Every structure is written in structure tokens, then in C-alpha cells.
Amino acid sequence: MQQIQQLQNSINQYISNKKYGTTPVELYEPIYYIMALGGKRLRPCLLLMACDMFGGDVQQALAPALAIEVFHNFTLMHDDIMDKAPLRRGKPTVHEKWNANVAILSGDVMMVEANKLIMQVDDRILRPVLDVFNDTAVGVCEGQQIDMNFETLTHVTIDEYINMIRLKTAVLVAGALKMGALVGGADDAEASLLYSFGEQLGIAFQLQDDILDVYGDPKKFGKQVGGDIISNKKTYLLIKAMELAKGETLTELNYWISATEFNGIEKVTAVKNIYNQLNIREHAEAEMNRYAEQAILNFEKINLPNERKVILKEFADMLLVRDY
């Protein structure tokens, strides 16, 4: 079995060697640019691990792994336009470096390129792999729209939030794993168990991100701690606080949510104090652990020797025990 570092090296090498187009320059340069910004390469690595776990040829899985990464970066390119985000991984976003029209069109080409990469899988499994990819792509778009809808809603439930992150974040993790399993030779039942594992893992991963946004070390987290508080983003933590807060605490929380002019550090400190009073971190960690445990229960049902499952299990554990 290949180790995690080997798989990461394989996908990074494949990404750096991939050629798209050259002209018009404005169409293709942004693709090379965003793909070179790095990142954890989490989803393509999971696809390769799933293929390897079932005894498949990892080389045959590199094209669909890159397809997942190209699609993921396409969504980031378009999300950054919607969010008016100035930076991505510490560098100017594509719409800032070029313009929004360039970012839209380059993103469209990335979606086409992702489909071309998917088409490189063996004809025998092309249909089921393409079905997973298309269902995943639609789910991610649905999740993004629901997330944008949340911005104008005054009341969002925990269940609605969990469904949103399931679509926006978790189905891409799950889809990558199922595609890798199919390329590796798994039957549909085993591949579906791995999908369920990935879905629960993806939800736990996003809940961990919510926690780190408030309680993470800014030097390690890589972005502004408290950014979700400043923007009133409806994360698990804020929704739970609105559910539990009473009396003066609720009044203060509503004050900070409705304030149009404020000092960012003061707002983060005040809302974080409310979270601490209400034990919000503990509630969020309990929810995260619940989904992590469900993920492991699904993983344990997969009928493979433990030695074949150990690398993916270790990688999953690493994702959920992090401070960045």
C-alpha cells in the first residue's frame, strides 16, 4: 500500500505537469494560477487512497483525482466572486488579479476540463463514475445557493445548517472516495459505504473548521480568526448560541449581530465571551464527534482486511485532530 506522502507527491506532480490551453492567455492563465496556489489536496488524495485501499492501480486514478481538484478550484474561483473575497491562500483572488468576467469564464473552462479528466477512466466504470461526479457537482452548487440564502434569513436551524454543509462540503469528500473505490474495483455496496463514511467525515471536518475560526491559533489557521463572527456567518456556533441565549445575553448577541459600525476585535471578543458563557465550543465539539463516530462506524462495515484500511483511517483521524 502506498503511504499518504507518496500519494500527495503523485497528485502534486500530476497537477504540475497538466497542460490546459495557452490562448487566449486571459482564459487559461487564471487556471494555472489558481491550481498552483496549493492547498491540502485533500479530496484528490482521498480518491487515490480509496482506489489503493481496494487494490486498484493508483496511476489509473490520477485523472479522476485531478478532475475532483480542478472542480473544487472552479467552485472556489466562483465562490470568491460571490463573496467579493480579495485573497485566496494569501494571494490575490482571480477576479482581483484579472476581473470578474475572466474569473467566470476561466471557471467555466475548468468545469469542462474536469469532465474531460473524468472521461479518462476505464469505459467499464465510466457511467457510474460520471454519475457520482455529476451528482456531486449539483450537490455542491445546491449547498452554495443555500448558504447564500442563509445570509438573508433571520432564523436558520441546526438541521438546515448541517444539510447545507453536507451539500457544500461533505458530498465532495464523499464523491471523491466513492469514485476512487469504483476505480479501485469496489462493488457498489462497498463504494456506497465509503460514500457514507466520507459524507459524515466531511460534516465533522466543516464543524471543526467552524470551531477553529473562533478558537484556532491565527498563526496556524492561515486566515483571520473570528472572521465568521465579524461577518455574522451562520455557523453551527452562532446558530447554537441564538438557540441557547436568554435575557441580557440574547440582547447583547443581537446587538452585535445587528451592529453596522463596530470595532472588529471588540466584536469578536464580545461574541466569543458569549459563546464561552453558553459552552458553545463544547456543544460544537460534541456534534463534530458525533459525526466522526458515525463515519467510523460506516468505515468499519467495509469488508476489507484492517491492514488495507489503516492508511485512510489514519488520514481521517489526522483531519479531525488539527489546529489549522
Rank of each mutant, 00 (worst) to 15 (best):
Q224E: 14
L278T: 03
A284W: 00
M119Q: 07
A270F: 04
F133D: 02
M82V: 12
V132P: 01
E69Y: 00
K84L: 11
V112Y: 14
D217L: 09
I31M: 12
N99D: 14
L48T: 05
I118A: 02
L172E: 03
K246W: 08
A241V: 04
K97F: 04
M77A: 11
R124K: 09
G143Y: 00
K84H: 13
F221T: 15
F299S: 03
V121C: 04
R127N: 08
A259L: 06
V171E: 03
G227C: 14
T235Q: 03
A85Q: 08
L297C: 09
N163C: 15
M119E: 14
L207R: 02
W98T: 04
L278F: 05
R124A: 13
Y20M: 13
Q59V: 15
D79S: 05
F197P: 00
E199V: 03
Q208A: 13
I211M: 15
K91C: 09
Q5D: 09
F150C: 06
L304F: 05
D122P: 09
Y28Q: 05
Y195E: 06
D147I: 00
V70G: 00
A36T: 12
L130D: 15
M110G: 02
N232P: 04
A204Y: 01
S196H: 13
I265V: 15
L278I: 06
F197N: 01
G39V: 08
M288I: 14
E243Q: 14
D213S: 12
E285L: 11
D79E: 14
A114M: 03
N134Q: 12
L126H: 10
L182R: 02
K116A: 09
T249N: 15
N298K: 12
D159T: 11
